[in-house]
Amino acid sequence: MSSNPDVQDTVGFNESTKPSAARAPGHDTEALLKTVLADVLGIAAQAADALEADSGLFGHLPELDSMAVAGLLTEIEDRLGIVIEDDEVDGEMLETFGGLLAFVDAKVVES
């Protein structure tokens, strides 16, 4: 799996590029979420970009097991500067891309 420099430019790993708590939800969150999913699933940026609201995640993709989901949520927390509580994690938010995006957007607004 080769890296994608375009994605790296928009979503970095440095402290300096970490988004602030005041980050607005919407397009940025969606792009970031797709990048994290591409990193976790090992798929190309274009394939991640094709994810739609009803695209199935947990329970639909065999490789996305509980360990991968835990890593995914931790990475989302790190890159967005949010905290996801265990009791907020349920089947509905993890089942589809749209569900996860709605949840993360709400967390960004909250933070």
Binding site: M1, S3, Q8, F13, N14, V40, E63, M67
Partner: peptide, 23 residues
Amino acid sequence: IDQSRLGGPGLWLRAEPDEDEDQ
């Protein structure tokens, strides 16, 4: 050595083992 210096996302994030010779 931060991941940002390797030019790609960390392979530990992968749901399944992967490789990246460039990294």
